[in-house]
Design a protein around this nucleic acid. Structure first.
Lengths: 212, 212
DNA sequence: TCGTGTGAACGAATTCACAGCG
DNA sequence: CGCTGTGAATTCGTTCACACGA
């Protein structure tokens, strides 16, 4: 694999995309795909596909295309999906429950090994084979379970505190669903999923369609 | 408000951001903010804030900054949040339930007026004051309830079919949580939230931190 | 010949820097 | 004087177009 300088955020998202397409393609029994195939109808050009992949190496054969199985493996490797990741879920509310039970995570190699909440009524209960622990125990749980990645589904006003604790405990990647702009120390990667923001970009589009 | 040509996606997301900050600021009793304040610590520069706002008009006073309450109202107007939006939720699973009960939506003016599912065991049940209806009734429900916007939380293999039906029924904005690339006719705005993709961008960052 | 890999051209988005107004 | 609003400069990402290898 090539030496990597700086890959844009959107390029990484497109890799996830290619991966999904390759999984489907492999299941359908095809052995090779062209950059044209990978681009599909949908905003991506074949040139972009080739450029994206070329940042990491030369996986294709000229005149033929890319070998499906090999390219899938390579992209998994690039995205860091060649292994299992130990995940903690902080916030055992409805959204947390929905994410916990989403089977797709485990299939992709994300294993939720800890669930934490502040509510004493929830602490001690079990979700499948994971016992809900008190958020005050966060540092201990992270260490004991070898947590590398956290998902935060607490209310907005608790999120910064939780993120601080996670960062202090050595967690370096956090997916945040709380609708608050959070700050993290350098070395910690934070990614926000903000449902209200997504809806707002839709209403913006609806409001400004036609003549602006 | 100015004539709008083309506003980048990320600029719209930043507007949502400013809105949230302005709400907090107003609650804290401040009357004016500078572009520097709005930028906060966090990847945005004050120049960018000024540029973003300048696309829509001149809301600030030189030497003073922006009036908090007025700017908040203006941004709400720009984002199309000056009114209530009627939303349908398709897919009454765990994720759908979590979104349905998320209070933040209603506060922002999103009212879920219909819930649909394919499962006969769910159809007829009620969530709060909304009865779950059969997805086969989609066109009728959309029309009767005046649905303008839909959230799709079905399994991946049902999503395209649902989106087709929504588009045919006249719904012009769709927020999709199903992990599948969907196609929509022109005139329909689709926005994807893909949890696996978000996690993958985190593992990419973890895998390639330090020397690439 | 076909489709990749890639420098070069292009275009979009961000940052700079400062004129101008309160 | 302070801070906005905005052209100009720059950086970053995408597309073009074609040489080259299978």
């Amino acid at each position: 694999m090539k030496r990597i300088t700086k890959i844009s955020d959107s390029a990484v998202r497109r890799l996830s995309h290619y991966l999904r397409f390759l999984e489907d393609t492999e299941a359908a029994g095809k052995r090779t795909v062209s950059s044209e195939d990978l681009a599909e109808r949908g905003g991506i050009t074949s040139a972009q596909v080739r450029k994206d992949l070329s940042h990491f190496g030369s996986f294709g054969k000229r005149g033929t295309g890319y070998p499906v199985a090999l390219l899938r493996e390579q992209i998994m490797e690039i995205l860091g999906l060649g292994r299992t990741w130990r995940v903690a879920l902080v916030g055992a509310g409805k959204l947390g429950a929905a994410l916990f039970h989403y089977a797709g995570f485990r299939r992709q190699g994300f294993e939720i090994v800890a669930v934490l909440d502040r509510d004493p009524a929830k602490v001690g209960r079990r979700w499948a084979d994971v016992a809900i622990e008190d958020v005050g125990e966060l540092a201990r749980v992270v260490k004991k379970q070898g947590v590398e990645l956290a998902i935060v589904t607490t209310p907005a006003d608790a999120a910064q505190e939780v993120v601080d604790a996670l960062a202090a405990a050595g967690v370096e990647a956090i997916l945040n669903f709380a609708p608050r702009k959070l700050s993290v120390p350098v070395g910690v990667t934070l990614r926000d999923v903000n449902l209200a923001m997504e809806l707002e970009s839709l209403t913006f589009a609806l409001t400004h369609r036609d003549r602006g």
